[in-house]
Nucleic acid binder design. Structure first.
Lengths: 351, 351
DNA sequence: GTTAGCACTCAACAGTGGAGAGTGCTAACA
DNA sequence: TGTTAGCACTCTCCACTGTTGAGTGCTAAC
């Protein structure tokens, strides 16, 4: 890539300095600030010349003639890819995260909700957690149970102790043995299969084997399908949106409202979570790199958690483009490990 | 009550006018405005005198010397109790509400979520919906089902087609017939009872009857208890918080943030919903009448829906004290009927 | 190639002075 | 005795002004 070399080392150092300072202060950064802060042995005038170059190359911009410089999206991109140094989580930070995860939760749902709130309060940014997509998980068993004369219950059990059920209402008199047959047939046909690739048997084929009416069989099969659909559907958790109001970029009420309303739209959050799933490891989307229009002033850092191929979900952190990228990236990576460990623990307790 | 008569008719009319205008305009109301608006045949000077009286009595206040008057909490209270005229929902408004409810939902949860979003977008205020408290509902049946050699599934069915289940992991070899016995015993003991008043049998008593080990019986009973707990627990839905940012009272970012953060606290929302349940029909809490400190600038209108005694939930609408009380009250009452009808429909389809 | 110095630009802030809305009080009126 | 017109007064709001300070770009000297 040609543009990678368009910056010499000194320019890179200066760009890094500018962005570091700006992330901290949220104020346009002037040449003097950089000259004093970094002992580069350079005067402010020199820096000024370099800054003019950086501006021409598009890495920084000037809000108005006599102001300091502000990083552009391109500048942040370069910073994230080449300049930013890994943020070592301090010991007490690690403790804080571990401790918050300590009160063990029994349910996966609770886990995700908890993680969401921990991450958002730790980083100070709104956070999304998407529960794992389970289309690769295996079906353990299907049961049809008679509740009373008018109702059957269809129960689907998936590995990891996930259970879904659905009530079937009917008006027939049904023999217990036929229900047992139905359960057996269903089990032999779909248990052990992956959720995503179950092909349901035809109702007709089952009539002779089970002795149940066609209508009832259809209802039962539908119920199974609905159970599968509900296991496959993912939940999305969102926490800490109001954190955004703490940042000066949203001190304008109009802008603040726009952003908050955006993050309250379910579609937006879902599509964010879903697009995170497409990239394998960590991804940083800066400002205008986001597809959604009104997100041009936001950055999103996402990663995927879970275990190879099956059952992977996503975490995402949303903030202004002026975001503490290094801290966010390292916290999200750390949390990812914690989640993975916790998921294994919960599943092991069940299996 | 003595204070009910401390206002003569003219004062009442003037107070009502002031509040009507202020609710609409959000600006302090001057004497001239009232004199012109209402053809009381009174000059502004007269109104001025009356307003001075109303201020002394605490119904209105003056933000500063040369400004108009603003209703106090006491003023709003009197307005809500005695002055406000019922808002007739216009035909197209009724249509809008009905239409929004039309796409029939199958699940109660979806219904509550939908209602929450409809009400908040219709009124323009944040809205809470609490799902019904089911401690009065009757247990229809309990089933224990063997999933594989190591897992039992406990299933609890409650009237209204509500099902909860819980997996029990064990290391024993269990005979099918013992499980059937357990199911039968459990059913004979607790089915038909109210959720809230189930008394669980002792594990010891069941050992001889069922032939299962004590440890396993304890696990099963715990699972049943957990299922009951989960049916009884209520969900709370919240929608439209950012609506608040549309009102001038929250154009101050500090105040806005305070309020938004408040409404994002789960405890606060839960306690609001819960306290709504205590009052039988409709309740309006104005500003400082709220227990929670930082809610002094908010009013809450709540009502209870559901059917006599059993399965009642709550709807609540939150807004600034300067709220369109009459419209809010009538919409909430109308929605309450719609919900009740819809709940009946869903339940009937299942039974 | 680096830097000191200088002229220039622009946002931010505080002060100023009308304009307008609204009040309370007084005196006159029905 | 209740009502009202009129007047002096108060206070916010807004537009305008000049000043300050931070920061730049350019030039000339090192």
């Amino acid at each position: 890539m040609a543009w990678e070399n368009e910056l010499n080392d000194r320019k890179k150092t200066i760009l890094k300095s500018i962005i570091d300072v700006y992330i901290q202060s949220a104020q346009p950064v002037g040449s003097r600030t950089i000259a004093r802060r970094h002992d580069l042995g350079l005067g402010s005038a020199t820096i000024r010349n370099e800054m003019a170059d950086l501006e021409e190359l598009g890495y920084i911009t000037q809000p108005h003639t006599s102001a300091g410089r502000v990083p552009s999206d391109k500048g942040y991109r370069f910073y994230v890819d080449h300049l930013m140094q890994a943020h070592q989580l301090a010991n007490d930070e690690i403790m804080r995260l571990k401790q918050a995860m300590e009160d063990s939760v029994e349910e996966l749902n609770q886990l995700f909700k908890r993680v969401c709130s921990i991450v958002s309060s730790f980083t100070g940014y709104p956070t999304i957690v998407m529960s794992p997509q389970l289309s690769e998980a295996l079906i353990k068993s299907v049961q049809v149970v008679a509740i009373d004369e008018k109702h059957l219950l269809v129960v689907l059990v998936v590995e990891g102790g996930i259970v879904r059920n659905r009530l079937v209402k009917h008006d027939e008199t049904v023999k217990e043995e036929n229900i047992v047959r139905m359960t057996n047939v269903l089990n032999s046909m779909i248990s052990g299969m992956k959720l995503g690739s179950v092909s349901m048997p035809m109702a007709l084929e089952l009539m002779t084997v089970t002795g149940l009416s066609g209508a009832l069989i259809v209802q039962i099969l539908d119920a199974v399908k609905e159970c599968i659909r509900r296991v496959e559907s993912t939940d999305v958790y969102l926490d800490g949106i109001t954190n955004l109001l703490n940042y000066p970029e949203f001190s304008d009420l109009i802008k603040a409202r726009e952003v908050l309303e955006l993050l309250n739209e379910e579609d937006v959050i879902n599509s964010l979570a879903r697009s995170a799933m497409r990239k394998p490891s960590i991804e940083v989307r800066i400002g205008s790199e986001n597809e959604i229009g009104p997100m041009k002033e936001l950055s999103v850092v996402t990663t995927v958690y879970g275990h190879k191929g099956r059952s992977t979900g996503a975490i995402g952190i949303i903030g202004p483009t002026r975001m503490t990228y290094s801290k966010v990236v390292s916290s999200i990576l750390y949390m990812k490990d914690l989640i993975n460990r916790e998921i294994l623990r919960i599943l092991n307790e069940r299996e």
